[in-house]
Write a protein that binds this DNA or RNA. Structure first.
Lengths: 232, 232
DNA sequence: CACTAAGCGGAAGTCAATCTTCCGTTTGTT
DNA sequence: AACAAACGGAAGATTGACTTCCGCTTAGTG
């Protein structure tokens, strides 16, 4: 096979710029940022962007590896703390705060993108560390025993909902909500939790294609249950 | 002023059909359902729909009054219960479950639509009842004293996030999350909550135009804080 | 310095999804 | 039966994103 042709210096520079621009925009609007916006932010023409990244997924992958690393860093930092509850608490709090700064964070943990080998590796790394953190907090930190990694994912989705709706106008809403939620996680007066999705289900559910996230129209629709089920 | 011209009988019937179709579709996909989809669901032509509802907001308003009534009914039912905590618990649980069945429910409580007199009336009714429920649960039901109506709104936004992401594949996720969250609301080991948005802020934040919810591109963007703030 | 191929920009062509109008046809009402 | 009201849905208009293409620019080399 022929040696990969070297890129010209300006090409390298532009590649870099595009990547930074993508990070910036993905952070700001989520990963549905348009190609043109990214190009503008990078100060290059769309043509350039396309030559370098013919497929949007490459771009996404690059950015995601970066964000994933940030998560891993956070996890490492937290795992280093001695107090198990403190560590867990700091993790959840900081992660959710990061989400507010960077709307692509949620996607890293909750996936929503086609698994490439590299991404898979980072992801399993994250899951592993996260589970470690959870396990420790369960045995030593008073974290309720029925709390799972899936519950973290769900929390991120929930937090994403708040952020999408009001982060710009109510920057305090998310943090308060998370703080509140954390209060439900320590053993104390625990209610019987309904079973949530299994890890497999959760993984499958979040495995959505990235490009063209346009959802046509739900074909049929569930059989519209009665809205006002007898409370309790 | 001339007496309002009577509608022809078929016109009346169609008006009704359109309204039902709108309810159905708004429930299924949220209020961004397209005009054509509604028309098809109603079994009428788009032209008909347009003549009857030249402005999409009328349609929305009609549907929302209906959904609002459902919320009020729920509230009344819950307020009738004797146990204050049970009542509150049932309210939150059922409301969140309703959200899963009907994606326009969240919008009714968290608004997101231009206040018409009629809507305002229903809304204040709901808020009033809801606050009553909260107040009772606080004094008699062990609800933590720092919990407010705004926290309910935030929870709905969060729940909407979960639903939007995975309700189709993980129908259990939302319920489990809500149950978990409810555990954080009883007095017990309470942490110091960060202040959330004030009622005024919350109202203002959720006051968004309904039509054309396309957000162009966030003009500037916050000053990108460092992502990995020192945990804790 | 000059030559060449790699690289660049962005206008223009595609495409899909919605909104909106318009008009020939159907239908209710008197 | 006759007329206006109402209907359906094709067609035009808009919008926003994706992708291609080509004439100009520039880095790298001899």
């Amino acid at each position: 096979m022929p040696p990969p042709p070297r890129l010209r210096s300006d090409a390298v520079r532009n590649r870099e710029r595009i990547l930074t621009a993508a990070k910036t925009l993905f952070a700001r609007v989520g990963m549905q940022a348009s190609v043109e916006d990214i190009a503008r932010e990078a100060g290059v023409g769309v043509g350039t962007l396309y030559r370098r990244f013919p497929d949007r997924t490459e771009l996404i992958e690059a950015v995601f590896l970066d964000r994933g690393q940030a998560c891993l860093d956070l996890l490492t930092q937290c795992l280093a703390q001695s107090d198990a509850w403190q560590a867990f608490h700091a993790y959840v709090t900081t992660l959710c705060a990061m989400q507010e700064q960077d709307r692509s964070i949620a996607d890293v943990l909750t996936l929503t993108l086609p698994p490439s080998p590299a991404i898979q590796r980072v992801r399993t790394g994250i899951f592993h560390a996260q589970n470690q953190l959870i396990a420790r907090a369960r045995t030593n930190g008073g974290l309720r025993p029925d709390f799972t990694g899936e519950d973290v994912a769900t929390l991120l989705l929930a937090n994403a909902g708040i952020i999408a709706a009001v982060a710009d106008k109510l920057p305090t809403a998310s943090a308060r909500f998370v703080a509140l939620h954390l209060d439900s996680l320590r053993t104390g007066e625990l209610s019987e939790l309904p079973a949530g999705p299994t890890p497999e289900q959760m993984l499958a559910a979040l495995q959505r294609p990235v490009t063209s996230q346009r959802v046509p129209v739900p074909p049929a629709g569930r059989p519209t249950l009665p809205l006002l089920s007898e409370p309790e």
